[in-house]
């Protein structure tokens, strides 16, 4: 019994320390992103653009492809479920459109970016930590958050909504492909039905979620990198942890925001 209580206590303390560390990193990043440049303390614009290309532009093929597949899957499952109630193709367009824009577009994008970029952030910063490169930056009087975290943070804040829009479009395209080949609808008919069913709120709720997800992925990836201990094994653990924790927090945030948007609609 004592051992169980001790485990609960240790886990709670560990969670509190982790949350405190994440909060501090978020606070410092916010300062170096939104305050410091206006105080003449510089801004790593080129590094941010480089990270946008790495995290955003290079993710286009995989996000697009997976989103098309998700759209096709949604349409297939939707058609199967609605067959029993005699619902027509219009409702499949509604299902695919709403599900992609409000939920699956931001969520699928976040999961891909967490696996691809969040882990890369943790690995890059973790490797720099074990090879004393971060110490070298600090020893030169250069703030490691300004140089390493802010560009990544900005990259995801900009590119997550962009990738989400791409994901939404690709998913809707996937649904349209199914409709064309299975339900004898033209693509224009599908697009018209999607346009008629979607409202702006569907799109911007998804984009707001994508911003929050991007923030979570950047923070967790960078934090895990800074927390690396113990050489190559530590870097490996941090990389895995960043993906797992990012996805968990993204889905937890998704629950909160989905409920918020539902109860305020």
């Amino acid at each position: 019994m004592t051992a169980v209580l001790a485990l609960i206590g240790r886990s709670t303390l560990g969670l509190a320390r982790y949350s405190q560390g994440l909060y501090r990193l978020t606070r410092d990043t916010a300062y170096w992103t939104f305050v410091a440049p206006f105080k003449g303390r510089g801004f790593k614009g080129q590094a941010a653009i480089h990270q946008m290309v790495m995290a955003g532009v290079n993710s286009i093929p995989i996000v697009g492809t997976i989103s098309v597949f998700v759209g096709i899957i949604l349409a297939l499952q939707g058609a199967y479920a609605m067959r029993n109630i005699g619902a027509g193709p219009y409702y499949i367009a509604l299902l695919v459109g709403v599900a992609m824009t409000r939920e699956l577009g931001p969520l699928i994008t976040a999961i891909i970016v967490a696996g691809r970029s969040g882990s890369a952030f943790a690995a890059e910063i973790g490797t720099m930590k074990v090879s004393e490169e971060i110490d070298a930056l600090e020893a030169m009087g250069l703030n490691s958050i300004k140089y390493l975290v802010v560009p990544k943070y900005l990259a995801l804040l900009v590119m997550m909504p962009c990738l989400t829009i791409l994901s939404d479009a690709a998913g809707i395209l996937g649904g349209g492909i199914f409709q064309m080949y299975q339900l004898d609808q033209t693509f224009l008919m599908f697009l018209a039905a999607t346009r008629d069913t979607l409202v702006m709120r569907d799109i911007w709720t998804g984009l707001i979620k994508s911003l929050v997800f991007g923030l979570i992925i950047a923070k967790v990836g960078c934090y895990e990198g800074f927390a690396v201990r113990g050489g190559a094994e530590g870097v490996g653990k941090a990389t895995t942890s960043s993906v797992v924790i990012s996805i968990f927090l993204v889905i937890a945030a998704d629950v909160v925001f989905t409920a918020l948007f539902y109860y305020t609609s």
Binding site: M128, S131, E132, E133, A136, A139, M140, G141
Partner: peptide, 20 residues
């Protein structure tokens, strides 16, 4: 303030710590 002092201190790390 210390970063102003740091500009006058150079350090060579054990592994050189070059940015790869």
């Amino acid at each position: 303030r210390f970063n102003l002092l740091r500009a006058k201190i150079g350090m060579l790390f054990q592994s050189a710590a070059l940015f790869n």
